[in-house]
Design a binder for these strands. Structure first.
Length: 228
DNA sequence: GACCAGGCACATC
DNA sequence: GATGTGCATGGT
């Protein structure tokens, strides 16, 4: 059973927060197994998915992605040339279709003008520079930028989402006013940078949140983390 | 019919 | 700088 060791946030010889972070990973990993997250044929498809999945269930995103593929638009230059109303019609199932079309176009402008439409040239950039670039693009916030960096570009950057904070809060591992950066640092200062592990940890937390840590249910006794 | 989902930008105070 | 609101579809 997972027993939370509550302590103030600290790093050092007795970093109990680190023990908890490792315990949570081990426990969830054992419970769910390898989740093989973010199925996609290309890094570009991951990026498109990262934008389309904003505040949206993945099943809806899958339909939209498939529509883009069938239409032959799952490539930077083809998608950039397509007119907005056509893209809107294809991604309607993923919701916010007007906003997301603008977001896709904003990213494509960056990709084509700064990287000749080639995602691979982004990989060569230092992570912090790349992240700032992505954050400067309209429609790309911290979670989307980090998802692109971790899943599409395979660089070790921990992705935080609403579930992550909710789970940490319920285990008294962060304060209510902790922001995205606080939580990201909390993990990254205590884990070895490892792309596959960061991907799996993020997926595990999202799965746990979805199944056991819903907003409307204040606690869950069948959660693998033994929420009280 | 209400609530939620693998957020973000913008307005307002 | 914190908080509220619009964006929109599909599943539960």
């Amino acid at each position: 059973m997972f027993a939370l060791k509550a302590t103030k946030l600290q790093i050092g010889t007795s970093d109990i927060l680190r023990e908890n972070i490792l315990s949570i990973y081990a426990l969830l990993n054992k419970h769910f197994g390898n989740l093989h997250w973010w199925p996609a044929e290309t890094p570009f498809e991951v990026i498109v998915g990262a934008i389309l999945t904003q505040n949206t269930a993945w099943t809806n995103v899958e339909t939209a992605i498939n529509n883009l593929k069938v239409a032959g638009l799952m490539s930077p230059h083809q998608l950039r040339q397509a007119n907005d109303s056509f893209i809107e019609s294809l991604i309607t199932p993923s919701g916010y279709y007007r906003q997301k079309t603008k977001k896709l176009k904003a990213f494509l402008k960056y990709l084509c003008e700064q990287h000749q439409g080639n995602v691979d040239t982004m990989i060569a950039m230092p992570t912090n520079v790349l992240r700032n670039d992505l954050l400067s693009i309209w429609g790309i916030g911290q979670e989307t930028a980090d998802s692109i960096i971790l899943y599409a570009l395979q660089k070790p950057l921990f992705v935080v989402d609403a579930y992550t904070k909710r789970i940490l809060l319920r285990h008294q591992m962060c304060s209510d006013n902790a922001d995205y950066g606080d939580i990201q640092r909390m993990f990254m200062l205590r884990l070895q940078p490892n792309v596959k592990m960061f991907q799996q940890y993020h997926a595990l937390l999202v799965n746990t949140g979805k199944l056991f840590c819903k907003k409307t249910i204040p606690s869950c006794t069948i959660c693998p983390l033994q929420c009280l």
